[in-house]
Every structure is written in C-alpha cells, then in structure tokens.
Amino acid sequence: MTIKPKNEQKIWAYTFLAFPLLLLSIFVFFPIAFAFIVSFFDWNLLIPDKPFVGLGNYIELFKDPVFVKAIKNTVIYTLGVVPVQTFLSLFLAFIMNQKLRGRAFFRTAFYIPAITSSVVTSIIFVWIYSKPGLLNYLLSSAGVDSNIDWLTNPSTVLPAIMMLNVWTTSGYFMVSFLAGLQNIPASLYEAARIDGASQWKQFWKIMVPMVRPVTYFVVVMSLIGCFQVFDQIFVMSSGGPDNASTTMSYFVYQNSFKYFRFGFGAASAVVLALLIFTVTAVQKKYFPPEAY
C-alpha cells in the first residue's frame, strides 16, 4: 500500500465531508439563517405583502406579557429540572455500577422512560395527575389529603411537568454517567480504600471529580433540552391554565403556526436561541469540562 500525497488525501476528505455538509446546509444552516431574516419582517405566510419592520417584532415581544411569562416559566423549568436530573442520574449510575442482584433489570427499568415516546409518557402522566388519578390516590393512602387536579392548578402545573421530565430523562443520562464511571480505573478506589476512605468519601472525592467531563456533557444537553421543552406542554397542558405553563418553544409554535405570525414567532425563536447560547457559553467559561 502506497501512501498518497497529502493534498490528494485532503481532496478526498473534503469530498466525503461535502455531502453531509450540503445536507446540513440545506436543512439546518439555511433555515437558521432564514429564520433570523424572517424575524425582521411582518411575515404572514398567507399574505404576499411582507413588510420589513426592523426590530419591531423584538420590541413587541418584550412588551408582550405572555412572552415575558414564557421566559420566566422556561427559566424556572430549567433551574428546577437540570440540577435534580443531573444528581438523580449520577446517583442512579452510582448504584447501578455496584454489583447488585438484578442489576440488568434495574438498568432496563430506568432506561425505558427514555426510549418511550414523550407523547405516550405525557398521556400516561395526564391520567396520573388528574383529580381521581394515581398521584392523588397514593397521597391520600399515605395520609395526605390531596384533592387537586395537578394540571389545571396554576401553582402545580409546571412542577408536575418538571417531575415528568426528570423521570423520563434521568435514565438516559444515567447511561452516560455509567459509561463515565466505568472508565475510572479501579486502582483509584483501591488506593482510597487502603487509605481508609468511606464509601461516601469515595463518591465525592473520586467519582464526582472523575466524571466531570460527563457531567459537563449532561448539564449542557439537559440545559438545551429544558430550554426547548415543547411536547410535554403541548400534550399535557397546552400552556394553560392562564399561561402558567407556556414555555418559549410553545410560544414560538403558537405564534407561528396558529396566529399566522411567522416573523413574530421567528423573533421569539431567535431570543430563545440567544438565551441558550449565552447560558452554554457561561457554563463553558466558568465550569469547563476539564478542571483536574
């Protein structure tokens, strides 16, 4: 086998890259750029006249109380879900990494919510959260008198959907953590045990720092996922009651596809994208994946 000259190799590399790049350009990069442009127009799909409005859509956005509420809801949602989810999945991974009886069964059980369609889990939870539903039944059997409809109560609807999201995605991130845990050399634990470190100390002083790159990945992915939450809202509450669960993506959808206002919808999508971008950038700067 002869080694080809470097330039020829490069040409081939670019040729192979070109096709996926083309696909991505058509279906991802171009729409992103186009949405950005659309956000400066009063863009109604059904009217040929699409006037340029400059920053008009953005100004209207921040005057819109529903949008302000949507930002608030999205931030609460993210702040609630991401830490709980990360700790829970790390904890689950820690347990699943032990030599437990029936480990395969538990791993499967925790992972099943992640591979189930979110619409299906949402519909199941609509029943669980309903007034005569399972949650109220369990609470009353435990002696707590609970007779509320979790999804039509403005103060419980968002926490209820947050709990669902923690439940569905923890299993998925557990697998990421498991992979990270199995990469930690056994010698580290051995050394710690020789030094007399307890199980708890090993968890905090070896495991948590060693899986830091995985933690970074998990936090970034779940941040983005939370900011974009849509299907659960769409199926379970339609943003109600009284916009108590309207999130930014739901707002984008409503305005674009229901109210015929693509420009306004695109502007809110741009704000959402900027928000995600900023948070991720801050995270990369202050909590980098490799600190040790």
Partner: peptide, 19 residues
C-alpha cells in the same frame, strides 16, 4: 379578531376559575 383572541380569552377564563 385575530386568532390569538381565543387563547387570550381562555387564559382569562382559567384565571377566574382556577385562580
């Protein structure tokens, strides 16, 4: 009215019923 009247009005109904 534009379609958004519906969601705005229903949100108001929900505020009166649930809140």
């Amino acid at each position: 009215m534009q379609e958004r009247w519906f969601d705005e009005t229903n949100a108001a109904m929900q505020a009166m019923f649930y809140k």
